[in-house]
């Protein structure tokens, strides 16, 4: 198990390297630079600044320096927030994003699995149709449309919840962003659960369980849920990636000071190191999470054993 995890992680290093290289060169190709601002800097000042941040070196040398830094867990200094290192910035933003994303995924799992299972058990009834059309809507409306709609309805018209920011830090502030972030995932997960649950309920071992006189709710909970959840577990990898991408937009719209916001600001200001830092950080996170998902899968499915 441990050997498997290590091997998987080493196997992911090339992927990570390509990711770093892509991020590094792409952002440099983008027009503009970190020291462009309304007020043009004196050429000497700018030259000094560039030298201070090693931007005057040839590109490959900069790249080597950056990778070397990363290997020592050093993301470098931020170009924009000059008093902070990128590591410090990530550490301020990430806890906020983690809370947001974690709650969104948990909510998506709870609601998605329940709704999907219900739809499967009541296949081709009104419950089923309701769940399925709701989730179709959830999938087809992009979050940058859904979020403002939610704000309009619940914050502006009904006034039940705050429209944005973290305010005094009360949980009320998180409700709308979490929902906006979770909705598409709820939709996906409920469709996924419904499909696999229907298939599992048709299998022979369910017939056996019925022949043994178990009541339906026990059959679902003890016999069907585990196998029906396997596809959902595999989907958790992509789901995390989707939630991270989504959080970039959602944090911006709701003014949540998370990592996504830093990323957007960084990109706008050509804060090379900050953008790359976030990319690399999320890259590692997604790789690690996918590994976790695979291990969870092995734990759920006795036929899969990693050695």
């Amino acid at each position: 198990m441990l050997r498997y995890a290590t091997r998987r992680f080493l196997g992911a290093l090339p992927t990570l390297f390509i990711l770093i290289a892509l991020a590094f060169f792409l952002i440099r190709v983008a027009p503009g630079g970190p020291f462009d601002s309304e007020k043009a800097l004196l050429p000497e000042v700018e030259a000094n600044l560039r030298a201070a941040y090693n931007l005057d070196e040839p590109l490959h040398q900069q790249f080597a320096r950056y990778v070397w830094g990363l290997a020592q867990a050093d993301f470098g200094p931020s170009f924009q927030y000059r008093d902070y290192t990128v590591t410090e910035l990530i550490m301020t933003g990430f806890p906020v994003s983690l809370r947001l994303g974690g709650m969104a995924i948990t909510l998506a799992l709870l609601v998605g699995v329940t709704a999907g299972s219900l739809a499967a058990l009541r296949q081709n009834t009104r419950t089923d149709y309701a769940v399925m059309s709701a989730s179709m809507t959830g999938i087809s409306i992009p979050n940058f449309v859904m979020a403002p709609l939610l704000i309009l309805i619940f914050a502006v018209y009904l006034g039940w919840l705050p429209a944005g920011g973290l305010g005094d830090g009360s949980p009320r502030n998180m409700v709308l962003p979490v929902i906006a972030l979770a909705l598409p995932q709820i939709a996906y997960i409920s469709r996924l659960t419904r499909g696999s649950m229907i298939e599992v309920l048709r299998s022979n071992f369910i017939r056996t369980a019925r022949a043994q006189g178990l009541p339906m709710h026990k059959i679902v909970l003890r016999h069907a849920l585990k196998p029906a959840l396997l596809p959902v577990v595999s989907y958790l990898g992509p789901a995390t990636a989707a939630v991270i991408t989504g959080s970039v937009v959602i944090e911006q719209i709701f003014g949540v000071p998370g990592l996504g916001r830093f990323f957007v600001q960084g990109a706008l200001n050509r804060d090379y190191t900050l953008v790359m830092g976030v990319v690399v950080f999320y890259g590692v996170l997604i790789i690690a999470f996918n590994l976790l998902v695979d291990l969870a899968y092995a734990w759920l499915d006795p036929k899969v054993k990693y050695s």
Binding site: S203, N204, R207, T208, R210, A211, R222, H223, P227, P302
Partner: peptide, 29 residues
């Protein structure tokens, strides 16, 4: 069902739950 009339099926691989141990499926009956 299961108590006074019980049933076994053709294909023992698919008729047992592959995700539960033998004990788990028997004990619950």
């Amino acid at each position: 069902r299961g108590r006074r009339i019980s049933m076994i099926f053709q294909d023992p691989m698919t008729s047992l739950n592959p995700y539960l141990t033998v004990a788990e499926q028997m004990v619950q009956v």
